[in-house]
Design a protein around this nucleic acid. Structure first.
Lengths: 157, 157
DNA sequence: TAGAAGGTTGGAGTGCACTCCAGGCAAGTC
DNA sequence: GACTTGCCTGGAGTGCACTCCAACCTTCTA
Protein backbone atom coordinates (compact mmCIF):
# COMPACT_ATOMS: atom_id res chain seq x y z
CA UNK A 1 0.00 0.00 0.00
CA UNK A 2 2.70 2.49 0.87
CA UNK A 3 5.81 3.04 -1.19
CA UNK A 4 9.39 2.43 -0.21
CA UNK A 5 12.00 5.09 -0.88
CA UNK A 6 13.42 3.18 -3.81
CA UNK A 7 10.49 1.26 -5.25
CA UNK A 8 8.53 4.31 -6.30
CA UNK A 9 6.44 1.94 -8.39
CA UNK A 10 4.42 -1.07 -7.33
CA UNK A 11 3.61 -4.17 -5.06
CA UNK A 12 2.61 -7.76 -5.95
CA UNK A 13 -0.47 -9.02 -7.83
CA UNK A 14 -1.73 -12.51 -8.52
CA UNK A 15 -4.29 -13.83 -11.00
CA UNK A 16 -7.62 -14.50 -9.34
CA UNK A 17 -10.52 -16.63 -10.60
CA UNK A 18 -13.63 -14.63 -11.41
CA UNK A 19 -16.51 -15.83 -9.34
CA UNK A 20 -18.50 -12.87 -8.09
CA UNK A 21 -22.06 -11.79 -7.54
CA UNK A 22 -24.68 -12.01 -10.31
CA UNK A 23 -23.80 -9.49 -13.01
CA UNK A 24 -25.86 -6.40 -13.49
CA UNK A 25 -29.08 -6.45 -15.43
CA UNK A 26 -29.57 -2.71 -15.66
CA UNK A 27 -29.01 -0.03 -18.25
CA UNK A 28 -27.47 0.08 -21.71
CA UNK A 29 -25.52 -2.68 -23.41
CA UNK A 30 -22.18 -1.45 -24.63
CA UNK A 31 -19.68 -3.30 -26.77
CA UNK A 32 -16.10 -3.53 -25.69
CA UNK A 33 -14.99 -0.87 -28.14
CA UNK A 34 -17.67 1.54 -26.93
CA UNK A 35 -16.50 1.04 -23.37
CA UNK A 36 -12.89 1.45 -24.48
CA UNK A 37 -13.76 4.79 -26.01
CA UNK A 38 -15.71 5.97 -22.97
CA UNK A 39 -13.16 4.91 -20.37
CA UNK A 40 -9.91 5.51 -22.25
CA UNK A 41 -8.90 1.93 -21.47
CA UNK A 42 -8.00 -0.34 -24.37
CA UNK A 43 -10.18 -3.32 -25.26
CA UNK A 44 -7.17 -5.47 -24.38
CA UNK A 45 -7.08 -3.98 -20.92
CA UNK A 46 -10.81 -4.44 -20.40
CA UNK A 47 -10.52 -8.15 -21.24
CA UNK A 48 -7.50 -8.42 -19.02
CA UNK A 49 -9.36 -6.75 -16.14
CA UNK A 50 -12.11 -9.31 -16.48
CA UNK A 51 -9.63 -12.18 -16.64
CA UNK A 52 -7.86 -11.23 -13.43
CA UNK A 53 -11.08 -10.73 -11.50
CA UNK A 54 -11.18 -6.96 -11.43
CA UNK A 55 -14.64 -6.84 -13.01
CA UNK A 56 -17.93 -8.39 -11.96
CA UNK A 57 -19.24 -10.94 -14.45
CA UNK A 58 -19.88 -9.21 -17.72
CA UNK A 59 -22.97 -10.23 -19.67
CA UNK A 60 -22.56 -11.75 -23.10
CA UNK A 61 -24.59 -11.49 -26.27
CA UNK A 62 -25.96 -14.70 -27.79
CA UNK A 63 -22.78 -14.86 -29.89
CA UNK A 64 -20.55 -14.62 -26.86
CA UNK A 65 -19.55 -10.99 -27.17
CA UNK A 66 -19.28 -8.84 -24.06
CA UNK A 67 -22.10 -6.43 -23.36
CA UNK A 68 -21.19 -3.92 -20.67
CA UNK A 69 -23.93 -2.37 -18.55
CA UNK A 70 -24.13 1.08 -17.02
CA UNK A 71 -23.28 -0.53 -13.75
CA UNK A 72 -20.07 -1.88 -15.28
CA UNK A 73 -19.20 1.64 -16.37
CA UNK A 74 -19.74 2.96 -12.86
CA UNK A 75 -17.47 0.25 -11.53
CA UNK A 76 -14.81 1.06 -14.13
CA UNK A 77 -15.03 4.66 -13.09
CA UNK A 78 -14.27 3.70 -9.52
CA UNK A 79 -11.44 1.46 -10.68
CA UNK A 80 -10.01 4.40 -12.61
CA UNK A 81 -10.11 6.54 -9.50
CA UNK A 82 -8.43 3.87 -7.44
CA UNK A 83 -5.73 3.50 -10.08
CA UNK A 84 -5.13 7.22 -9.85
CA UNK A 85 -4.48 6.89 -6.15
CA UNK A 86 -1.61 4.58 -7.02
CA UNK A 87 -3.39 1.53 -5.68
CA UNK A 88 -1.99 -1.58 -7.33
CA UNK A 89 -4.10 -3.79 -9.53
CA UNK A 90 -3.58 -6.54 -6.98
CA UNK A 91 -5.16 -4.45 -4.25
CA UNK A 92 -8.01 -3.49 -6.52
CA UNK A 93 -8.64 -7.16 -7.21
CA UNK A 94 -8.64 -7.73 -3.47
CA UNK A 95 -11.24 -5.01 -3.11
CA UNK A 96 -13.33 -6.49 -5.92
CA UNK A 97 -13.23 -9.83 -4.12
CA UNK A 98 -14.47 -8.21 -0.94
CA UNK A 99 -17.35 -6.63 -2.85
CA UNK A 100 -18.26 -9.99 -4.33
CA UNK A 101 -18.00 -11.67 -0.94
CA UNK A 102 -20.92 -9.70 0.46
CA UNK A 103 -21.83 -7.09 3.01
CA UNK A 104 -20.00 -8.67 5.90
CA UNK A 105 -16.78 -7.40 4.36
CA UNK A 106 -17.70 -3.76 4.97
CA UNK A 107 -15.14 -3.30 7.76
CA UNK A 108 -12.30 -4.66 5.67
CA UNK A 109 -13.30 -2.61 2.67
CA UNK A 110 -13.35 0.44 4.88
CA UNK A 111 -9.89 -0.41 6.18
CA UNK A 112 -8.53 -0.86 2.65
CA UNK A 113 -9.89 2.44 1.47
CA UNK A 114 -8.82 4.26 4.61
CA UNK A 115 -5.26 3.04 4.10
CA UNK A 116 -5.44 4.20 0.50
CA UNK A 117 -6.71 7.56 1.68
CA UNK A 118 -3.71 7.92 3.97
CA UNK A 119 -1.46 7.09 1.04
CA UNK A 120 -3.10 9.74 -1.06
CA UNK A 121 -2.63 12.38 1.61
CA UNK A 122 1.02 11.43 1.90
CA UNK A 123 1.46 11.58 -1.85
CA UNK A 124 -0.16 14.99 -2.08
CA UNK A 125 2.22 16.19 0.58
CA UNK A 126 5.22 14.75 -1.24
CA UNK A 127 4.11 16.37 -4.46
CA UNK A 128 3.74 19.71 -2.75
CA UNK A 129 7.30 19.30 -1.53
CA UNK A 130 8.59 18.63 -5.01
CA UNK A 131 6.68 21.65 -6.25
CA UNK A 132 8.69 23.86 -3.93
CA UNK A 133 11.95 22.39 -5.25
CA UNK A 134 10.85 22.78 -8.85
CA UNK A 135 9.87 26.40 -8.28
CA UNK A 136 13.30 27.24 -6.91
CA UNK A 137 15.02 25.55 -9.85
CA UNK A 138 12.78 27.13 -12.44
CA UNK A 139 13.24 30.56 -10.90
CA UNK A 140 17.00 30.03 -11.03
CA UNK A 141 16.94 29.08 -14.70
CA UNK A 142 14.59 31.91 -15.55
CA UNK A 143 16.70 34.51 -13.82
CA UNK A 144 19.91 33.25 -15.44
CA UNK A 145 18.86 32.54 -19.02
CA UNK A 146 22.27 33.50 -20.34
CA UNK A 147 24.47 34.27 -17.40
CA UNK A 148 27.23 31.89 -16.39
CA UNK A 149 26.45 29.34 -13.71
CA UNK A 150 27.61 29.66 -10.17
CA UNK A 151 29.40 26.97 -8.28
CA UNK A 152 27.38 23.90 -7.47
CA UNK A 153 26.11 23.29 -10.96
CA UNK A 154 26.45 19.57 -11.35
CA UNK A 155 24.88 19.01 -7.99
CA UNK A 156 22.24 21.67 -7.68
CA UNK A 157 20.90 22.40 -11.13
CA UNK B 1 5.78 13.62 -19.50
CA UNK B 2 2.02 13.41 -19.06
CA UNK B 3 0.17 10.19 -18.53
CA UNK B 4 -2.38 8.56 -20.77
CA UNK B 5 -5.65 7.29 -19.30
CA UNK B 6 -4.49 3.69 -19.48
CA UNK B 7 -0.72 3.82 -19.13
CA UNK B 8 -0.72 5.14 -15.60
CA UNK B 9 2.89 4.10 -15.44
CA UNK B 10 5.86 5.17 -17.58
CA UNK B 11 7.64 6.23 -20.90
CA UNK B 12 10.86 5.01 -22.55
CA UNK B 13 14.47 5.06 -21.29
CA UNK B 14 17.72 4.23 -23.04
CA UNK B 15 21.21 3.57 -21.74
CA UNK B 16 23.43 6.61 -22.02
CA UNK B 17 27.23 6.75 -21.87
CA UNK B 18 28.48 8.61 -18.84
CA UNK B 19 30.62 11.49 -19.97
CA UNK B 20 29.79 14.52 -17.88
CA UNK B 21 31.51 17.46 -16.24
CA UNK B 22 34.47 16.95 -13.93
CA UNK B 23 33.23 15.22 -10.81
CA UNK B 24 33.01 17.01 -7.52
CA UNK B 25 36.02 17.45 -5.31
CA UNK B 26 34.22 18.75 -2.29
CA UNK B 27 33.06 17.34 1.00
CA UNK B 28 32.97 13.89 2.55
CA UNK B 29 33.78 10.60 0.90
CA UNK B 30 31.03 8.11 1.38
CA UNK B 31 31.02 4.46 0.45
CA UNK B 32 28.17 3.07 -1.58
CA UNK B 33 26.57 1.44 1.43
CA UNK B 34 26.69 4.67 3.40
CA UNK B 35 24.96 6.45 0.55
CA UNK B 36 22.46 3.63 0.26
CA UNK B 37 21.59 4.08 3.91
CA UNK B 38 21.33 7.85 3.67
CA UNK B 39 19.22 7.93 0.51
CA UNK B 40 17.12 4.81 0.92
CA UNK B 41 18.27 3.66 -2.50
CA UNK B 42 19.92 0.25 -2.77
CA UNK B 43 23.58 -0.06 -3.71
CA UNK B 44 22.40 -1.86 -6.82
CA UNK B 45 20.30 1.09 -7.79
CA UNK B 46 23.13 3.56 -7.18
CA UNK B 47 25.42 1.59 -9.49
CA UNK B 48 22.65 1.35 -12.03
CA UNK B 49 22.03 5.11 -11.85
CA UNK B 50 25.68 5.69 -12.60
CA UNK B 51 25.64 3.20 -15.44
CA UNK B 52 22.72 4.82 -17.23
CA UNK B 53 24.15 8.31 -16.89
CA UNK B 54 21.95 9.60 -14.12
CA UNK B 55 24.94 10.52 -11.94
CA UNK B 56 27.90 12.78 -12.58
CA UNK B 57 31.20 10.89 -12.54
CA UNK B 58 31.71 9.40 -9.14
CA UNK B 59 35.20 9.46 -7.70
CA UNK B 60 36.95 6.19 -6.94
CA UNK B 61 39.32 5.11 -4.20
CA UNK B 62 42.73 3.75 -5.19
CA UNK B 63 41.17 0.29 -5.16
CA UNK B 64 38.42 1.28 -7.55
CA UNK B 65 35.61 1.64 -5.03
CA UNK B 66 33.12 4.47 -5.38
CA UNK B 67 33.51 7.43 -3.06
CA UNK B 68 30.48 9.67 -3.10
CA UNK B 69 30.85 13.35 -2.27
CA UNK B 70 28.42 15.70 -0.54
CA UNK B 71 27.68 17.11 -3.94
CA UNK B 72 26.66 13.65 -5.12
CA UNK B 73 24.29 13.44 -2.19
CA UNK B 74 22.73 16.77 -3.10
CA UNK B 75 22.26 15.54 -6.64
CA UNK B 76 20.70 12.30 -5.42
CA UNK B 77 18.34 14.34 -3.31
CA UNK B 78 17.18 16.22 -6.37
CA UNK B 79 16.85 12.97 -8.29
CA UNK B 80 14.70 11.61 -5.49
CA UNK B 81 12.46 14.65 -5.69
CA UNK B 82 12.15 14.33 -9.44
CA UNK B 83 11.27 10.64 -9.07
CA UNK B 84 8.54 11.63 -6.67
CA UNK B 85 7.02 13.87 -9.29
CA UNK B 86 6.61 10.78 -11.45
CA UNK B 87 9.29 11.91 -13.89
CA UNK B 88 10.67 8.87 -15.71
CA UNK B 89 14.26 7.79 -15.33
CA UNK B 90 14.68 8.51 -19.04
CA UNK B 91 13.67 12.13 -18.54
CA UNK B 92 15.93 12.45 -15.55
CA UNK B 93 18.82 11.14 -17.63
CA UNK B 94 17.93 13.73 -20.23
CA UNK B 95 18.06 16.40 -17.56
CA UNK B 96 21.40 15.11 -16.29
CA UNK B 97 22.74 15.32 -19.85
CA UNK B 98 21.61 18.93 -20.08
CA UNK B 99 23.38 19.72 -16.83
CA UNK B 100 26.55 18.11 -18.13
CA UNK B 101 26.25 19.96 -21.43
CA UNK B 102 26.71 23.35 -19.81
CA UNK B 103 24.98 26.61 -19.08
CA UNK B 104 23.62 27.14 -22.57
CA UNK B 105 21.02 24.49 -21.81
CA UNK B 106 19.33 26.64 -19.17
CA UNK B 107 16.25 27.33 -21.33
CA UNK B 108 15.67 23.67 -22.06
CA UNK B 109 16.19 22.69 -18.47
CA UNK B 110 13.66 25.31 -17.49
CA UNK B 111 11.22 23.93 -20.05
CA UNK B 112 11.68 20.37 -18.79
CA UNK B 113 11.09 21.34 -15.19
CA UNK B 114 8.17 23.61 -16.05
CA UNK B 115 6.47 20.71 -17.85
CA UNK B 116 7.13 18.53 -14.83
CA UNK B 117 5.63 21.20 -12.62
CA UNK B 118 2.47 21.22 -14.70
CA UNK B 119 2.32 17.46 -14.35
CA UNK B 120 2.63 17.72 -10.60
CA UNK B 121 -0.19 20.24 -10.39
CA UNK B 122 -2.36 17.97 -12.49
CA UNK B 123 -1.53 14.99 -10.32
CA UNK B 124 -2.32 16.85 -7.13
CA UNK B 125 -5.66 17.77 -8.61
CA UNK B 126 -6.35 14.17 -9.61
CA UNK B 127 -5.45 12.96 -6.15
CA UNK B 128 -7.75 15.50 -4.56
CA UNK B 129 -10.50 14.15 -6.81
CA UNK B 130 -9.86 10.59 -5.67
CA UNK B 131 -9.89 11.78 -2.07
CA UNK B 132 -13.46 12.96 -2.48
CA UNK B 133 -14.49 9.58 -3.87
CA UNK B 134 -12.71 7.71 -1.09
CA UNK B 135 -14.37 9.84 1.55
CA UNK B 136 -17.84 9.06 0.22
CA UNK B 137 -17.08 5.32 0.15
CA UNK B 138 -15.51 5.27 3.57
CA UNK B 139 -18.43 7.18 5.05
CA UNK B 140 -20.79 4.67 3.48
CA UNK B 141 -18.96 1.69 4.95
CA UNK B 142 -18.67 3.37 8.32
CA UNK B 143 -22.36 4.16 8.48
CA UNK B 144 -23.39 0.64 7.43
CA UNK B 145 -20.99 -1.56 9.37
CA UNK B 146 -23.62 -4.29 9.77
CA UNK B 147 -26.68 -3.22 7.88
CA UNK B 148 -27.63 -4.90 4.61
CA UNK B 149 -26.41 -3.31 1.41
CA UNK B 150 -28.66 -1.29 -0.84
CA UNK B 151 -28.96 -1.83 -4.57
CA UNK B 152 -25.90 -0.91 -6.60
CA UNK B 153 -23.44 -2.93 -4.59
CA UNK B 154 -21.28 -4.51 -7.27
CA UNK B 155 -20.93 -1.20 -9.02
CA UNK B 156 -20.82 1.41 -6.31
CA UNK B 157 -19.09 -0.12 -3.36
C1' DT C 1 -20.43 -15.01 -52.38
C1' DA C 2 -16.76 -12.02 -50.99
C1' DG C 3 -14.85 -9.05 -48.01
C1' DA C 4 -14.67 -5.94 -44.17
C1' DA C 5 -15.51 -4.87 -39.42
C1' DG C 6 -15.57 -6.17 -34.97
C1' DG C 7 -15.58 -9.52 -31.75
C1' DT C 8 -13.48 -14.15 -29.26
C1' DT C 9 -9.45 -16.89 -26.95
C1' DG C 10 -4.83 -18.38 -24.64
C1' DG C 11 -0.49 -17.33 -24.53
C1' DA C 12 3.54 -14.71 -25.66
C1' DG C 13 5.81 -10.22 -25.77
C1' DT C 14 6.96 -5.36 -24.16
C1' DG C 15 8.77 -1.44 -21.40
C1' DC C 16 10.02 0.24 -17.17
C1' DA C 17 12.62 0.29 -13.04
C1' DC C 18 14.92 -2.06 -10.69
C1' DT C 19 17.21 -6.47 -8.50
C1' DC C 20 20.01 -10.34 -8.32
C1' DC C 21 23.88 -13.39 -9.48
C1' DA C 22 28.41 -15.37 -10.20
C1' DG C 23 32.92 -14.70 -9.92
C1' DG C 24 36.37 -11.93 -8.34
C1' DC C 25 39.40 -8.37 -5.61
C1' DA C 26 41.21 -5.84 -1.35
C1' DA C 27 41.54 -4.98 3.46
C1' DG C 28 41.03 -6.31 8.18
C1' DT C 29 40.71 -9.79 12.05
C1' DC C 30 41.61 -14.28 14.36
C1' DG D 1 46.75 -18.68 6.16
C1' DA D 2 41.72 -18.77 6.70
C1' DC D 3 37.80 -16.21 7.06
C1' DT D 4 34.79 -12.24 6.86
C1' DT D 5 33.26 -8.00 5.08
C1' DG D 6 32.50 -4.94 1.58
C1' DC D 7 33.07 -3.73 -2.77
C1' DC D 8 33.58 -4.54 -8.06
C1' DT D 9 31.63 -6.08 -12.92
C1' DG D 10 28.50 -7.54 -16.91
C1' DG D 11 24.67 -9.70 -17.76
C1' DA D 12 20.53 -12.10 -16.59
C1' DG D 13 16.22 -12.12 -14.03
C1' DT D 14 11.96 -10.07 -11.78
C1' DG D 15 7.40 -7.88 -11.12
C1' DC D 16 4.05 -4.95 -12.74
C1' DA D 17 0.72 -3.47 -15.97
C1' DC D 18 -0.34 -3.83 -19.82
C1' DT D 19 -0.13 -5.00 -25.13
C1' DC D 20 0.07 -7.79 -29.02
C1' DC D 21 -0.51 -12.01 -31.83
C1' DA D 22 -2.57 -15.77 -34.44
C1' DA D 23 -6.37 -18.20 -35.44
C1' DC D 24 -10.95 -18.15 -35.40
C1' DC D 25 -16.17 -16.71 -35.40
C1' DT D 26 -20.40 -13.49 -36.55
C1' DT D 27 -22.69 -10.05 -38.65
C1' DC D 28 -23.30 -6.81 -42.07
C1' DT D 29 -22.82 -4.56 -46.62
C1' DA D 30 -21.75 -4.69 -51.63
Amino acid sequence: MSQTPQGICCPAPRPVPVEGPPAAGTGGRYTISEVAERTGLSAHTLRWYERIGLMPHINRSHTGQRRFSDRDLVWLDLVGKLRMTGMSVADMVRYAELVRAGDHTYPERRRLLAATREDVLRRIDELRGTLAVLDVKIAHYTGNEDTPAVSEEAATS
